[in-house]
Simulated scan of single mutants.
Amino acid sequence: MLASTNRTPLKVLTPTLADRLRVFNAAARNLQAHGIRVQAFHPANNLLVITPESGQRLINLGHTDGYQRHGTAGSTRYNVQFQGVTLEWREPISAARPADWSRATLH
């Protein structure tokens, strides 16, 4: 078996990636310190998946920026920015409906 005589250090964590991970980890820790349940961590995409209850709580507290709502066939996906990280949660389309949706339908 041939072995390389040059021992070059393998640099996987670049300064840019290290900074992104620092911001990502700080946001995740801050969320968890405030009782927000994180369901999935996606550091490569700078994305944290949280519970729908946690997402609504953050919106009501005003700790987020860039609120986006994306309707799909079976659920609604929400995205917000929190301390430089994207938070995402999904709610079934039947989750919360305004009170006037329950009125009788006239034909």
Rank of each mutant, 00 (worst) to 15 (best):
R37D: 09
L61R: 14
H42Q: 09
F82Y: 07
I36A: 01
L10C: 07
A44T: 13
S54M: 02
R69Y: 00
L87I: 03
R97K: 13
I50Q: 00
R103A: 15
V85A: 03
T51Q: 02
L13N: 07
F24A: 05
V38P: 04
R97F: 11
A73L: 13
L61P: 02
T8L: 15
Y67D: 07
R97Q: 15
A104I: 13
E53A: 10
R29V: 08
N60D: 12
H34S: 11
A44D: 12
T64G: 03
G66T: 05
A18W: 04
R69L: 07
H42I: 10
I59W: 04
R77G: 06
N6T: 11
L106A: 12
V80F: 00
Q83C: 02
T16C: 03
P52I: 05
T14L: 12
N60C: 06
L48H: 01
A3H: 09
Q83N: 06
W101N: 12
F82H: 05
I36T: 06
N60R: 12
L17K: 11
L31R: 01
T14C: 06
T72W: 02
D65Y: 04
G74V: 11
A27Q: 00
A104E: 10
I59A: 05
G35K: 05
L87T: 02
L61E: 13
W101S: 14
T51G: 03
R29C: 08
K11S: 09
P15F: 01
I93N: 14
T51M: 03
P15Q: 07
R37G: 03
R103V: 15
H70D: 09
R90Q: 14
N46C: 05
A3I: 15
T5W: 04
E91Y: 03
N79T: 13
E53W: 00
T72Q: 10
H42D: 06
N30L: 05
I59V: 08
L31I: 01
A3G: 15
S4M: 06
Y67G: 05
A28T: 00
G71I: 08
R29F: 07
T51P: 02
A99V: 14
S102C: 05
G55A: 09
T64Y: 03
M1R: 08
R103F: 10
S54G: 15
L58W: 02
R77F: 07
V23W: 00
L10P: 00
P98Q: 12
R77C: 07
A99T: 11
N45F: 12
T8D: 13
L61C: 04
I36C: 04
P15I: 08
R7S: 11
V49K: 00
Q83A: 10
N79A: 14
T64P: 01
H63L: 15
L10T: 14
Q81E: 10
G35H: 01
A18N: 05
R22P: 01
F24Y: 11
W101E: 15
Q56E: 12
F82A: 02
D100C: 10
L47K: 01
T105G: 06
T5Q: 06
N46V: 07
I36V: 15
N45P: 04
H70L: 15
Y78N: 09
L13A: 10
G84W: 00
A96G: 12
